[in-house]
C-alpha cells in the first residue's frame, strides 16, 4: 500500500487538503476539552493523549432525529413517518482517531450491521467516511489497549495510519478506500513510512502492559461468571451514574422517543445507559435488573464475556481507559476483569 511523508512545513497544507476534500473531523479543543469534532485546518493538534469523549458520536450522535411526520390532512401522508437525514450524508474524513477507538467503532459496526439487520443511519455515515488513525507513541497512564488485544499502532477499523515524525507525519494507507483517497489528495508526497511505523510499533508495545489473562472467562460458563460472589462488592461503590457508558467507544445503547407539537412530530434516538433502572423496567413494573448490582454486572459481562462470545473472541473493552479515568468512585475494569478470571 501507498506510503507518504508529510514534512512539518507541509502539515498545514495537508489538513487544508483534507478539509477541502471532505468535512474534517479531528482532535480540537472544545470548551477546554480535547474532542473529535469539526475542525479548521489550523486548529488540528497532534499533541494529545486521547479525546475526552470517544469519537462514536461522528456516526452515532448523542441525539439523532430518525424520522418525522406532519398532521396536515390537506397534504399527502398525514401521520406517516418519513425518514430524516439519510439522503444528505456529508462526506467526512476523520483524522487522528486513536487505534483503540477505531477498533471500538469496528466493534459497534458489527452491532449496527448485525447478522439480521442493518442500521442505515449508522451505515451511511460509517462506511462513507475515511478514517485516518494517529498512532500513540506516548500512551496515557490509564491506557491498556495491549492488555486487551490491541496496539497503539493497531490498524483495525482504519483506512490509513499516521505517526508523528519530526513534527510532521509518516503515513500509510491500510484499505483500498484509504489508498484511493490519499492518492487523490493534492500535494501529498510519497516517502517510506512502513518500516518506521513497524519499528516504532515494537518499541511502544514493549513499554505497554502485557495481555490481561481472560482464559477462564473465555472458557467459563456464562452462569458461573454471572453468579460469582464479587459483583456485589464492586457494585456497592458504583453510583450507577452512567459516566462509563457515555464515554465508552463500544457502548452503543440507545432509547427511542417521539416528540410532537400540534403540527407534527419526530422520532429520535438518544444515547441510553444500562446503568439506569428505567432501561429494563417492563410496563408492568417488573424489572429484570432491579438493583445496581445487576446493572453494573451487565456492563462488565457485556464487555468481557458477551461481546467476545459474539465477535470471535474480540474483547468488548478496547482499553481506552476513559471509564477508568472518569469513574467518580474509581471502579477499574482491569480489576473487575481479574476478579472475573479469578
Amino acid at each position: 500500500m501507498a506510503e507518504y511523508i508529510v514534512k512539518e512545513n507541509a502539515l498545514r497544507a495537508f489538513f487544508q487538503a483534507l478539509a477541502q476534500e471532505r468535512r474534517l473531523l479531528a482532535p480540537v479543543r472544545v470548551g477546554g476539552k480535547l474532542q473529535m469534532a469539526e475542525a479548521r485546518p489550523e486548529e488540528v493538534t497532534l499533541d494529545y493523549g486521547n479525546t475526552h469523549q470517544s469519537p462514536k458520536s461522528a456516526f452515532f450522535p448523542q441525539t439523532e432525529r430518525l424520522m418525522a411526520f406532519h398532521k396536515d390532512t390537506a397534504q399527502s401522508d398525514p401521520f406517516v413517518y418519513k425518514p430524516l437525514g439519510l439522503d444528505k450524508i456529508t462526506p467526512t474524513v476523520l483524522f487522528g482517531l486513536r487505534p483503540c477507538d477505531a477498533q471500538g467503532l469496528a466493534i459497534c459496526d458489527q452491532v449496527f450491521q448485525n447478522d439480521r439487520f442493518t442500521d442505515p443511519y449508522w451505515k451511511t455515515k460509517y462506511e462513507s467516511s475515511i478514517k485516518i488513525g494517529l498512532a500513540c507513541d506516548q500512551p496515557g497512564p490509564a491506557c491498556f489497549c495491549t492488555a486487551v488485544g490491541g496496539s497503539p499502532y493497531g490498524e483495525a477499523g482504519l483506512d490509513a495510519l499516521a505517526a508523528v515524525k519530526d513534527a510532521g507525519l509518516a503515513l500509510k494507507a491500510i484499505t483500498e478506500a484509504g489508498a484511493e483517497f490519499l492518492k487523490k489528495l493534492p500535494g501529498l508526497e510519497s516517502g517510506a513510512a512502513e518500516s518506521e511505523l513497524a519499528e516504532r510499533r515494537k518499541a511502544v508495545e514493549s513499554k505497554m502492559p502485557g495481555p490481561l489473562d481472560q482464559a477462564k472467562v473465555a472458557a467459563g460458563a456464562i452462569l458461573d461468571i454471572f453468579n460469582q460472589p464479587h459483583w456485589k462488592d464492586t457494585a456497592d461503590r458504583c453510583l450507577n451514574c452512567g459516566t462509563c457508558t457515555f464515554v465508552c467507544p463500544t457502548c452503543h445503547c440507545f432509547d427511542i422517543q417521539d416528540e410532537q407539537n400540534d403540527k407534527g412530530g419526530v422520532r429520535m434516538r438518544n444515547w441510553d445507559t444500562c446503568m439506569s433502572w428505567l432501561y429494563t423496567v417492563h410496563g408492568t413494573g417488573h424489572n429484570p435488573r432491579p438493583t445496581k448490582t445487576e446493572r453494573m454486572r451487565q456492563r462488565f459481562l457485556h464487555k468481557l464475556k458477551y461481546i467476545p462470545l459474539k465477535q470471535n473472541g474480540q474483547s468488548g473493552c478496547i482499553g481506552c481507559g476513559r471509564c477508568v479515568t472518569l469513574c467518580p468512585v474509581n471502579i477499574d475494569i482491569r480489576e473487575v476483569a481479574k476478579q472475573m478470571n479469578g
Binding site: 452491532v111 449496527f112 440507545f254 434516538r269 432501561y279
Partner: peptide
C-alpha cells in the same frame, strides 16, 4: 418478553446474556 426499543438487536436493551430477545 423484555423491554424493547429497536427490535433489531442494536439498541442493547433486551439482552438475556449474549442473546437479544428481539433479534
Amino acid at each position: 418478553e423484555n423491554r424493547m426499543k429497536c427490535g433489531l438487536g442494536i439498541c442493547g436493551r433486551c439482552n438475556v446474556g449474549p442473546e437479544y430477545v428481539c433479534k
